[in-house]
Simulated scan of single mutants.
Amino acid sequence: MSDPRASVEIDAPLEVVWQVMLDTASYAAWNPFVVGAETAEPPAVGNPIVLHVRWADGSRTTSPERITAIEPPVTDTEGTVTARLSYVYEGWPARLGLVRGTRHQRLTQRPGGPTTYDTVEEFSGPLVRFAGPGRVADGFRRHAEALRSHAERLAP
């Protein structure tokens, strides 16, 4: 299986979507996949972040991560705005070299267009198949759809 991913177009300004993504304390109010995120506020590169994940079957797990990138919105010469949030998995399978994962969440908004949210988990290691890439992809889809709904409700 390829790396788990999801993508959705959001009818809201990129800055609104970005603020929702960085407001980790509010994830429980809208996010059906990452139902909680414990990190220092505001989130910063290098900070640990513990994600409380709810799988589609209702079971839960925690995932210790570390924030590796917070790239606030920037506009290029064509007027396209982009931003990125990334974190790396730090659980015991990662420490043993068995399953490594880095999640990237990218936002892109072309002039006059919707905001595109793309997320991917770049998995590696000999036990990746046991990490449940299929259920991670399902969680990413649920997360993306909920992000769209929440950001569109907040948009001016």
Rank of each mutant, 00 (worst) to 15 (best):
Gln19Trp: 04
Glu9Trp: 12
Phe33Ser: 03
Glu9Gln: 15
Gly36Ser: 08
Gly46Ser: 13
Asp11Val: 13
Glu38Lys: 10
Gly46Arg: 12
Pro42Leu: 06
Pro13Ile: 03
Trp18Ala: 03
Gly36Trp: 08
Ser26Pro: 06
Val20Cys: 09
Ala29Val: 07
Phe33Gln: 00
Glu38Asn: 10
Val17Glu: 03
Glu38Met: 04
Pro43Ile: 11
Asp11Glu: 15
Gly46Leu: 14
Val17Leu: 03
Val35Leu: 07
Val8Ile: 15
Trp18Leu: 01
Pro13Tyr: 02
Trp30Ser: 00
Thr39Ile: 07
Met21Ala: 06
Asp11Phe: 10
Gln19Ile: 00
Leu22Gln: 11
Val16Asn: 05
Val45Thr: 14
Val8Cys: 12
Ile49Val: 12
Ser7Asn: 13
Ala40Glu: 06
Val20Arg: 01
Gly36Ile: 06
Ala12Met: 10
Ala37Trp: 07
Val16Glu: 07
Asn47Gln: 08
Thr39Pro: 02
Glu38Arg: 10
Glu9Thr: 13
Val35Asn: 00
Glu9Ser: 15
Met21Cys: 11
Glu9His: 15
Pro32Glu: 06
Ala25Thr: 13
Pro13Gly: 06
Thr39Gln: 04
Pro48His: 03
Val34Tyr: 06
Glu38Val: 09
Ala28Phe: 12
Val34Leu: 07
Val8Leu: 09
Thr24Gln: 09
Asp11Met: 14
Val17Asn: 02
Trp18Glu: 08
Ser7Ile: 15
Phe33Thr: 02
Tyr27Pro: 01
Thr24Trp: 00
Ser26Cys: 02
Asn47Asp: 12
Thr24Arg: 02
Ile10Ser: 08
Trp30Phe: 07
Pro43Trp: 07
Pro32Ser: 09
Ala37Cys: 15
Pro48Met: 03
Ala28Lys: 11
Pro13Asp: 14
Asn31Pro: 07
Thr24Tyr: 02
Ala25Met: 12
Glu15Leu: 05
Met21Asp: 05
Leu22His: 08
Pro13Arg: 02
Asp23Ile: 09
Trp30Asn: 00
Asp11Gly: 14
